[in-house]
Computed example of a mutant assay.
Amino acid sequence: MLRDKLKKYKIILASGSPRRQRYFKELNIDFEIRLKDVEEVYPPELKGAEITDYLAKLKAEAHIPIHNPEEIIITSDTIVWHNGKALGKPKDYDDAFAMLKSLSGNTHEVITSVCFLHQHGEHVLHETTKVTFNLLSDQEIKFYLDNYKPFDKAGAYGIQEWIGLVAIQKIEGSYNNVVGLPVDKVYQYLSTFAEITHFRN
């Protein structure tokens, strides 16, 4: 099991997202939450996964230097990519409404990057999922915003909430990625990392 493979390491999840924290608990591995304030600003020429890769690395590198050689720092970033623009967390209610209005009746991409920082270096992976929304009325959008307040979520929605039940017409790719973490890729990377470093030692 992954827990046994990682027993010599200290897993640090540098994320305040309750969804990502829940996924790590469900992976049945020991981990610690460690947060640092990072200004999430990226060069304007970046697009799509370039943005999330950059921000995930930026968050990880805020933890340099790593004082414990057994630590693995894990950071992540998610955006909604739609019409050539990145939709992160909404600034306010009106911004959230505008985001959902633009997603209504259209297909967008949810992109999540994960960065692993450890004594052997740095590794970044990402996952892209295509999501198609049904048409939403203004009343439906307002109902969702008023009752679920998704202001901490990229693209102003959480697929695991009411809007995921009524608005999602089609998903192409990983559902977990839309929630906020490509869990299968994280599991595979940590498993492979543990095996490789075991043989190094």
Rank of each mutant, 00 (worst) to 15 (best):
M99D: 01
K149G: 10
S113R: 02
Y23L: 13
Y42M: 06
T52M: 00
E39R: 13
M99T: 03
T75N: 07
S76W: 04
K85L: 11
L103E: 03
I111R: 00
Q21I: 13
V38G: 05
F97Q: 06
N147P: 12
I141E: 02
T107V: 11
K91F: 13
E26N: 12
D92N: 15
E127Q: 12
N83A: 13
A96S: 10
G84I: 00
Q119D: 14
F116L: 10
E127C: 09
D94S: 14
C115E: 07
F24T: 06
N106V: 05
K47Y: 01
R34H: 11
S104Y: 05
E71S: 09
I73A: 05
E61H: 15
I73R: 04
E32S: 13
I79V: 14
F24W: 10
G121N: 08
K59R: 12
N147K: 13
E109D: 10
N134C: 14
L145R: 03
I74G: 02
A62H: 08
D53Q: 12
C115V: 08
D92Q: 09
T78I: 02
L46N: 03
K47G: 01
I66T: 09
S113Q: 04
R34W: 11
P90T: 11
K47C: 01
K59F: 07
Q139E: 15
G105V: 04
R22W: 13
D37K: 15
K85M: 12
H126M: 02
H82I: 01
Y93D: 10
V41Q: 14
E40M: 09
N68Y: 07
I66Q: 11
A60L: 09
L135E: 15
A56M: 07
I141N: 03
K101F: 08
P65M: 10
V124F: 08
L55P: 02
G121K: 10
L145G: 05
H126P: 02
H118D: 14
V41K: 15
K47M: 02
L135V: 15
H126E: 02
F133G: 01
N147Y: 11
D77M: 08
T128F: 00
E50S: 06
L87Q: 01
D92C: 09
D92M: 07
K59V: 08
V124K: 04
I51R: 01
F97E: 06
T112M: 06
K149S: 14
I74T: 07
G48A: 05
F133R: 03
F24L: 15
L125T: 10
